[in-house]
Design a protein around this nucleic acid. Structure first.
Lengths: 345, 345
DNA sequence: CCAGTCCGATAAAACGATTTAGCACAGTGA
DNA sequence: TCACTGTGCTAAATCGTTTTATCGGACTGG
């Protein structure tokens, strides 16, 4: 009735455990006759080797962990698909833990991964990650690749997005259309992502527009984007275009405009960031910066595999470009601000 | 330079491994003096016990697995939050695997969980799950709770939604508003979820409307919902209300209406299912059936814990109710089909 | 007939922890 | 002094595998 172990199989086949192990692993010199007996016994008992014992004896795990700040974020979901596909094809099991941007939860997750000696870690650090998490991982020689958010003084490989260049492209696109009063909406202040993107915004705006920057904070979800857009438009009625820190915010912002009776595009231009699947389906479809999230996930996985293969390799920071996808939320500015017949709510 | 093990700690503290173990576990009779020495040594080396060895020796794992058909589905994300919160508070580590509705991937995941002797499994079966997966899990005595999709002849605990009653409520709501030509949109045909929901639809429609049912298939995402809504409206121009199999479809459907120049609500009523976070943020906000996904996740976790605590308990099938949330996509039918000023696309 | 070579199978030592039984020693009461 | 009782610690067995060294036998060549 109990779970069969290797000894059970060996006993049933009338051989020693060593022999049984060699048959199952395909190593050593075994006669065809005994090989068949062992295989039959294993199949009969439907024997499954205990992964813990195997890992303990042979030292390796083929399990990698993914610690992510928000599992339900559509961008992350697509990246994860890419990561999993590549790693699974190499025979790894990848298990996902969601820190929900809580440093405490994240700490528990990282410790659990260390305790169970996962063979590698792909990590989007939580927003308020303390600096000693890096030491924790580094001390335990955990092969680690960070994604999206780079930690200060990080010794780890990193895959990120060319944020400044991307936002530059967005601002240039708007300026080409004739916009001058261009605001920046969203993002969490702590992280490099936001810093780099804002740098791109400030630099390009100063090149292309006589007006100063307008930066408006909000959280990274549709509800916040919606509220923030309304507040921003009331505070700065002359703004004609908004660059958003992410598609969630941008989609929220278009909803905000609709509720104010304004048409996204003709009345106020909006550019998103990430090109999540929703971006193409909202009404109107969102102009945004796309980063090919699935492919990015594959690159992430590849980076980790390289690190596992050679722990002494030089640290690599890979930046992938983002490209502009023009849909319907950007248009030349319209001098008179027309009101739409169908008022919102 | 290598990872410190218990023997390293013991050596540094000048005691035996047995003593070191007892200090760290807090068992046995240990003098205050040696206790301090061991603790200091462990801290100094920053020792972390090897979870694999611990699990192997003591037989238990405190790791549970979550195999889900689509990790990026917003409903699942909220359910997962509830599951994780409860299980983590009980000291379990929960790792998530995404089958992406592929039976093959799912099989690999389940086998991996069995090999590593996870102490339990919460499972949303993939759409084309073969029946022998059930045997696989049952043979290995894996404590399992299925969610959302119930397998035929399943010996496992299950937590599901009162689908038929919920759809009944949705149809009644529409009928109360005066609708008679009510269609059903979306869902994957294989599963009980869809069967039960359709049963509720057929039954209640026949009670409340002189017209026959209209059932229109589509996949469970916004893009499909959008396309299907347009096709449905063209095929059946006299339909005035649509009940959707999920919020993703419903949101897609509202987008489809907007692109046709119709107003969701006044021109055609739509009811969703799930009440995902987006539902309240789309324009117009979606009328839908809410199931309190976070609380549902907690119940799921509780069910699994009970099962782990007592493997011989009678199988439990728990159905949770869904409640109507009225927002702005349902309204009394308007006799003349007015066109909106702002045409879509 | 002996040394050498292969072949097939196995005993035993790891892997890193927990746990049980027992040992040495000090203190206590008779 | 002896028997007894705690106290503080440790040796050794154990969990389920893999791997290494070894062993007996059959065969080969000189």
């Amino acid at each position: 009735m109990k779970k069969p172990k290797l000894a059970t199989v060996a006993a049933q086949a009338g051989v020693s455990v060593a022999t049984a192990s060699q048959v199952l692993r395909g190593t050593g010199r075994i006669s065809e006759q005994t090989r068949k007996r062992v295989l039959a016994a294993a199949d009969d008992l439907n024997y499954v080797p205990d992964a813990r014992a195997v890992a303990m004896r042979s030292g390796v795990n083929r399990e990698i962990g993914l610690v992510i700040h928000e599992i339900s974020n559509p961008l992350n979901a697509e990246v994860m698909s890419g990561v999993c596909d590549l790693l699974e094809s190499e025979g790894f099991l990848v298990s996902v833990l969601d820190s929900r941007d809580s440093a405490e939860r994240q700490r528990r997750h990282l410790e659990a991964f260390i305790r169970s000696s996962r063979s590698g870690l792909i990590w989007v650090p939580a927003a308020d990650t303390p600096s000693d998490e890096v030491d924790l991982l580094a001390n335990h020689r955990m092969p680690t690749v960070t994604f999206l958010r780079r930690l200060p003084n990080s010794p780890f490989d990193h895959v990120g997005i060319e944020d400044a260049a991307a936002i530059s492209a967005a601002v240039n696109h708007l300026a080409d259309l004739g916009h001058q009063r261009i605001a920046y909406l969203g993002g969490i202040a702590t992280f490099g992502v936001r810093v780099d993107r804002l740098a791109g915004y400030h630099r390009t705006l100063s090149e292309r527009s006589p007006f100063g920057p307008i930066v408006w904070d909000c959280e990274d979800n549709k509800r916040s984007g919606l509220d923030a857009m309304i507040a921003l438009k009331n505070a700065h009625p002359d703004v004609t275009a908004v660059v958003c820190n992410g598609d969630m915010v941008a989609i929220g912002a278009t909803q905000g405009l609709l509720r104010m009776g304004l048409r996204p595009g003709p009345d106020l231009s909006i550019v998103g960031f990430d090109d999540i699947q929703d971006a193409a389906v909202t009404t109107p479809p969102l102009t945004t910066m796309t980063i090919r999230p699935y492919q990015l996930g594959r690159r992430l996985a590849r980076t980790l595999l390289d690190r596992i293969a050679d722990p002494h390799m030089l640290r690599a920071v890979t930046m992938v470009p983002a490209e502009l996808v023009c849909r319907d939320t950007t248009a030349p500015p319209a001098p008179p601000a027309r009101r739409l017949a169908m008022a919102g709510r």
